[in-house]
């Protein structure tokens, strides 16, 4: 399949990227790993006249903790977070989400920044990063701003990025002591999008949950935060009864649609089951001492 014709740029700096975006405000797309965009272009579902490749822009490959947050640069590949010791040790939910994105070959080029900026509700990182209360750095010619992921994700394939802004970094708050995170995905086979998936982070003080984050994949027009379930858990001991009720509330927050992968009821039931399992796992990880520095 051959994409529609386009003009390709590989500028060497952000100011050059902004200039190109300003010259072509309606028909330019940013290319990072391209593992979602290029298939869309081959199907001609996306027909940008201008592609602006970020591969020569310096400074977009940070993967480190800085000033209380994990910084993930826009060009960090899924394979890097999948195999990073730092991520595996301190952000297991991100590790688990990266490890189930598409397949290992796609992950060698696909980026987490692209996974977010593409704003496909079927993508795995938005829900996990909602649970971790991540934010996005949008960098434009007039400076940079930090956007909470809840506000960044607007609708299916729609974000709050301005036309001349570029997503340059993702910031994930460093988990408090005694925190645990996990990402659980139901997929028919390797490489598929989630039938349903859940990202969870639990923080404990003693035996009491002081903060809960729950994000849901592919059961709505964008990644869904299960707010009621989060509020229900907060201030309670995550006993089996509490976890079951939180899972019920998360399923109620899901807005799945029936398709070839299953009817609406089935998907809601899967969200309920996955949420309960993820909450048990995250709680266990938090109790086991949670993340270590």
């Amino acid at each position: 399949m051959i994409p529609e014709d386009f003009t390709y740029f590989a500028p060497g700096s952000l100011p050059e990227v902004w200039d190109l975006l300003r010259q072509h405000p309606d028909d330019a797309k940013i290319l990072a790993g391209g593992q979602s965009l290029i298939p869309l272009m081959k199907f001609r579902l996306a027909t940008p006249a201008y592609l602006i490749d970020l591969r020569k822009v310096p400074g977009l490959d940070t993967l480190a903790e800085r000033d209380g947050a994990l910084v993930i640069g826009a060009m960090v590949r899924e394979a890097a977070t999948e195999h990073s010791q730092l991520i595996q040790r301190r952000y297991p939910g991100i590790h688990e989400a990266s490890a189930v994105v598409a397949d290992p070959l796609v992950r060698n080029f696909a980026t987490i920044g692209g996974n977010i900026a593409h704003a496909d509700p079927a993508n795995d990182h938005p829900a996990m990063l909602l649970a971790l209360r991540a934010s996005v750095v949008a960098h434009g010619p007039n400076g940079q701003r930090t956007i909470p992921l809840d506000d960044f994700l607007v609708d299916t394939m729609e974000t709050s990025l301005a036309p001349d802004e570029v997503l340059t970094e993702i910031h994930v708050p460093q988990p408090a002591p005694r925190s645990g995170s996990t990402y659980l995905k139901l997929e028919r086979k390797v490489g598929d999008y989630a039938i349903a998936a859940v990202g969870v982070q639990i923080t404990l003080d003693g035996d009491v949950c002081t903060q809960a984050g729950i994000g849901l994949t592919n059961v709505g027009p964008k990644a869904v935060r299960a707010t009621q379930a989060e509020m229900f858990l907060t201030g309670k001991q995550p006993t089996e009864d509490v976890i079951r009720e939180a899972a019920r509330l998360a399923a109620a927050a899901a807005q799945p649609v029936s398709d070839l992968h299953g009817p609406e009821d089935y998907k809601r039931a899967m969200i309920r089951t996955l949420t309960a399992r993820a909450l048990r796992e995250a709680t266990q990880r938090a109790r086991a001492g949670g993340v270590s520095a």
């Binding site: 399949m1 590989a10 391209g34 290029i38 298939p39 490749d53 591969r55 598409a102 070959l105 080029f109």
Partner: peptide, 27 residues
């Protein structure tokens, strides 16, 4: 498959395996 699924087109790019149906030559 020509749709990033099958891997028949896998080549190494600077030593890293990738699906060459999902990369532009200009990249």
């Amino acid at each position: 498959c020509d749709t990033t699924s099958c891997g028949a087109c896998t080549v190494l790019v600077n030593g890293v395996p990738a699906k060459s149906c999902t990369l532009f030559a200009v990249q």
